[in-house]
Design a protein around this nucleic acid. Structure first.
Lengths: 153, 153
DNA sequence: GGAAATGGGACTCGATTGGTCCTGTATTCC
DNA sequence: GGAATACAGGACCAATCGAGTCCCATTTCC
């Protein structure tokens, strides 16, 4: 269904909370309460984000998480990749060349790669900072990918 | 994983075969053999495409399928929608306003709608005809969505 | 040393998808 | 007119995947 997982969706919601107060440490319990999501799930997501390098974690009492980088430099594509692995619209794209038995007969694989690239670039062009902004300022979502996509790859 | 279903993938492969010989009737068995896919699965996919109006079917001996429209006028987005329903990156987008209990607190829903729109437009901009073309001619995949996406919606 | 927090898994349950099969209906050909 | 062929529509099963929970180890602060 061209669907991201619910966890990626949650992740973005949680990260926007962290982006609101970048200087402070937020622990999993507080974030879960704020976002009205179950604690174990929130905890799991935060762990993944920390392992991917998007969050810095601090253990122990008074521990918690902060953004590892500025919200402007974190893209939606990175967040999704952190939880779901590389962005690949079709199985054959993720598997890489040679894994699909149909490949010799398949006339469309290369074109899927192009589509996949277009989607990935669209997601890379949107920063976490933009996701926190109200809608009016977000016309750039429609525009930003343009420059990147025009140049041949 | 931002993944389309395998059936949508198959559908595009099958449709490219139909697009190669638009004037002739192709039955399910022949298409299955050409694409090296199991007949029941191919048959199911073709039925869905026919019901969605992308294929015209002819029953009886010597029956089969043809494209209902020219390959240029069928978009990848239509094909995916025919098999998977409307393109919606997140649950809350598909459900429509009011269905998500988090909605009053959710600051990012509107932004997801924008992202979803960008992806949908990228898929709408690619025609079945383009999927059949060799890679060199496909720089347009990277360029086509631009004009549509710039205009405010 | 105890409490509180993250780190890293294993595990279960449910939904979705992939795939098959069966019955009915329309069409063609003999 | 009957038989063969091919689509229409859905029921059905199995496998996979995602969501969510739980447990235990490790670190840090008081």
């Amino acid at each position: 269904m061209i669907r991201i997982t619910r966890q990626s969706d949650y992740a973005i919601v949680l990260l926007t909370r962290l982006a609101d107060e970048p200087a402070e440490l937020h622990n999993a319990a507080a974030l879960a309460a704020e976002a009205q999501l179950p604690l174990p799930t929130v905890s799991k997501i935060l762990k993944h984000l920390a392992r991917a390098g998007l969050l810095e974690s601090h253990r122990g009492v008074k521990g918690g998480y902060t953004l590892a980088r500025s919200p402007e430099s974190i893209s939606v594509a990175e967040i999704i990749s952190a939880l779901e692995g590389p962005i690949a619209v079709t199985e054959c794209i993720e598997d890489g060349p040679g894994e699909c038995s149909q490949e010799p007969f398949c006339a469309v694989r290369g074109n899927w790669q192009r589509i996949n690239l277009a989607i990935r670039q669209a997601l890379e062009a949107i920063s976490l900072a933009e996701m926190t902004e109200p809608l009016e300022r977000l016309v750039s979502i429609g525009r930003r990918p343009v420059e990147q996509r025009i140049e041949p790859s």
